[in-house]
Amino acid sequence: MKVTGFSFIKNAIKYQYPIVEALQSILPLCDEVVVAVGDSDDGTRELVAGIDPQKIRIIDTVWDDSLREGGRVLAVETEKAFRAIAQDTDWCFYIQGDEVLHEDGYDEIRKAMHTWKDKKEVDGLLFKYRHFYGSFDYIGVSSKWYKREIRIIRNDPNIFSYRDAQGFRKGDNEKLKVKPLNAWIHHYGWVRPPETMHEKQYNFSKHWSGDNWQPQKVYEAYDYQSHIDALEKFRGTHPRVMQQRIAAMNWKFDYDLSYNRLPVKEKFKNLVEKLTGQRPFDHNNYRIV
Results as ranks from 00 to 15, higher is better:
N173G: 09
I95G: 06
I150Y: 01
P18K: 01
L74Y: 15
H227A: 08
Y17S: 07
F8D: 01
D164C: 10
T115L: 09
S226Y: 04
D164I: 07
T237S: 09
D223V: 11
V218Y: 12
T237P: 00
V141I: 15
L101K: 03
A49R: 13
K267N: 13
K117V: 03
R169Y: 14
D31M: 03
S25E: 03
W116K: 00
A221P: 12
S66G: 06
G97P: 02
V48E: 00
S143T: 06
Y146P: 08
H102Y: 09
F268N: 09
Q24E: 13
Q54S: 14
F127W: 03
N173V: 07
D88V: 10
V37A: 01
D229P: 02
K177Q: 15
K170C: 13
R279K: 12
S143C: 04
R261L: 10
T44Q: 01
Y162P: 03
T61L: 08
V191P: 09
T78H: 10
I228F: 11
I152R: 00
Y222C: 09
R45K: 15
K128D: 06
G277E: 08
Y129G: 00
K144T: 05
K2T: 04
D223C: 11
F168G: 06
D118C: 00
S209K: 14
P193Y: 05
A84D: 10
T89L: 09
R279Y: 09
P215G: 14
S25M: 05
R72N: 05
K217E: 14
V178E: 10
R68A: 04
L257K: 05
N158M: 13
W63C: 04
E174N: 07
M249K: 14
P193E: 07
S7P: 08
F268I: 15
V48N: 01
K111P: 01
P239L: 08
A165T: 08
L47R: 05
E199D: 13
W91F: 08
Y202S: 07
H283C: 01
Y162H: 14
G50R: 05
V33N: 02
R235K: 07
N203F: 13
Q278V: 14
V272E: 13
N260L: 12
I59N: 03
I19A: 08
G70P: 01
L27N: 00
S135E: 07
N260M: 12
K55E: 12
K206S: 02
R154H: 04
I58G: 05
F93A: 11
E21G: 00
A221K: 15
P157G: 01
Y188G: 06
D60M: 00
I150K: 01
F132N: 02
F132T: 02
P18I: 03
C92G: 06
S258F: 07
H102C: 14
Q24L: 12
W190R: 12
Y188C: 06
Y138E: 01
G210N: 06
I13S: 02
